[in-house]
Each structure stands twice: as C-alpha cells, then as structure tokens.
Design a protein around this nucleic acid. Structure first.
Length: 252
DNA sequence: TGCGTAACGGTTGAT
DNA sequence: CCATCAACCGTTACG
C-alpha cells in the first residue's frame, strides 16, 4: 500500500513502479507507435520502457485488443460461484433469519456443493453481506463480479495511474473477448499524434521523442483521468482502451 | 541487433 | 480484522 510517488529508474532511464502496471498513457502510446510502424526496439528506447515490457504489451494487445493490464490480485472464486451465490440468496430469501452455518449445511445437503467446494461460514457471511445484502429483489444472478454499485466503479488502481473507466482488468489470457477480433488491422487509426508533427520521418525518429513524447503522454494522461466517467471525451485517443478485455477472470 | 521469455522482486485483493 | 496465496506487474538477463 502507499503508492510511492516516485518509482525507480530502469536501465533506459525510464521511471517505473515495481510491481505496478505502467501508466495507461504509456501503454496506449506503445500500441499507437507500433501501429505507426515504429519498431518495438525503437518504441522501447523512445519511451524508455524495457523491451520486454513493450513486447508483452504489444503481444497482449494483439491477442486481446486491450492495452490494459491484467487483473491484479484477488483470487478467483473457488467456492462462491454464481450458482452457489444464487442458492445462498434463495435460502436467505426463504428464511431471512437463517444462519450462515445452516446455509452451509444446506448447500451440502442439497448437493449444490460437495465437501471440497463448500464455502466456509465466513465466506457465506461475506456473500450475504456483499453480494446479497438487502436481498429485496435482486434478480441478476450475474452480479457476482461486475457490480457497478457506486457511480464510481472502483478504481482499478490508485489515482496515480487512474485507468480509464470501464474496468480495468484485462482478462488474462482470454483469446478473444466479445467482438474483439484483436486484429490491429481493423483499428480506426486516425492520427493520434499531438499535432502535425508527422512521424513520417521515421528515419529521424530520434527527433520526435523525448519532449513530444512527454507532452503527449501528459496530455493523454489527462484524457485518461477524465475518462473515468463512462462517457469518453470526443477527442478520445484512438487505439483506446476500447474493448477493454475479457472479464477479470470469469466466475468459473 | 532485435526480440521472446524465464527469473526475479514486487503489489494486490478475494478468500 | 488479518493472513494466505495466486494472479499480475516491469525489469533484467539470457539465448
């Protein structure tokens, strides 16, 4: 906890925070530069991001269509699957005074779970608290993970990074999320460049980096921040975080 | 020289 | 409330 305001410096002189994903703006640019035809090794040098990272981000983008990092932390529901949650909700609705340990017994008795995937009492309590709560009439049994309770969808990361609205979390290795061909070719790759500093002179790439990159990223970061809201600004950077990625480790 | 990837030290967050 | 621990992170180093 406690995000260091300043990270460490890598061999290329770039700043990074160990254990944490690169800022969105940079991830975005890695992809965009690649689409402009700039080679990974040059992107690495220009952005001062290790080539290993550039390689990884690009590879991920190619297969998921998302520039976002994968879902960090947590653990996949081992026992509290959507089905189990649904049953618990039913028990609770039929007998609001039921105890967690009674629910546990019933899950077993009803064959919903076996002794190996039977949730602990504390797990059940948590489910009652977090997922069912009022149990007035929630119907969507799909509310296991993507609940959007507050207007502010739990920020995936500290504001230091602030990721673009919609979730964070790229779904690990899911090959092709919904409608996400993941083909870089389809991209609506308008010119994302700041102004008209055409990148055309790829031969003189060196002339555009440094400063312009910094400026661009700063600008991009602002967009990312304001993008916290569902509605994206019109000038939303192309490659974008669209599509995002798959659900963070599906319920099953 | 470029790049894919394992090892490494690190953080996170549901269980 | 706290410990676990598996998931991910980016950098480094190797091939």
């Amino acid at each position: 906890m406690m995000e260091p305001a300043f990270g460490e410096v890598n061999q290329l002189g770039g700043v990074f925070v160990n254990g944490r994903p690169l800022p969105n703006a940079i991830r975005l640019r890695i992809v965009e530069l690649a689409q402009l035809g700039i080679r990974p090794c040059d992107i690495s040098r220009q952005l001062r991001v290790s080539h290993g990272c550039v390689s990884k981000i690009l590879a991920r983008y190619n297969e998921t269509g998302s520039i976002l990092p994968g879902a960090i932390g947590g653990s996949k529901p081992r026992v509290t699957t959507p089905t189990v949650v649904k049953h618990i909700r039913t028990y609770k609705q039929r007998d609001p005074g039921i105890f967690a340990w009674e629910i546990r017994d019933r899950l077993l008795a009803d064959g919903v779970c076996d002794k190996f995937n039977l949730p602990s009492v504390s797990s059940i309590s948590r489910i009652l608290r977090n997922k069912i709560g009022n149990l007035s009439q929630q119907n969507q049994y799909e509310s296991s993970k993507q609940g959007h309770p507050p207007p502010q969808p739990t920020l995936p990361y500290n504001h230091l990074y602030s990721y673009p609205t919609s979730i964070g979390a790229a779904g690990t290795k899911v090959p092709a999320p919904q409608g996400m061909p993941g083909l870089p070719g389809h991209m609506a790759m308008h010119r994302i460049w700041p102004s008209s500093h055409s990148v055309t002179d790829i031969l003189g790439i060196r002339s555009i980096t440094e400063q312009q990159n910094a400026e661009w990223i700063a600008h991009s970061e602002q967009l990312c921040h304001s993008a916290q809201h569902p509605s994206l600004p019109p000038s939303h950077p192309s490659v974008a975080l669209h599509g995002v990625a798959a659900a963070p480790r599906g319920p099953l």
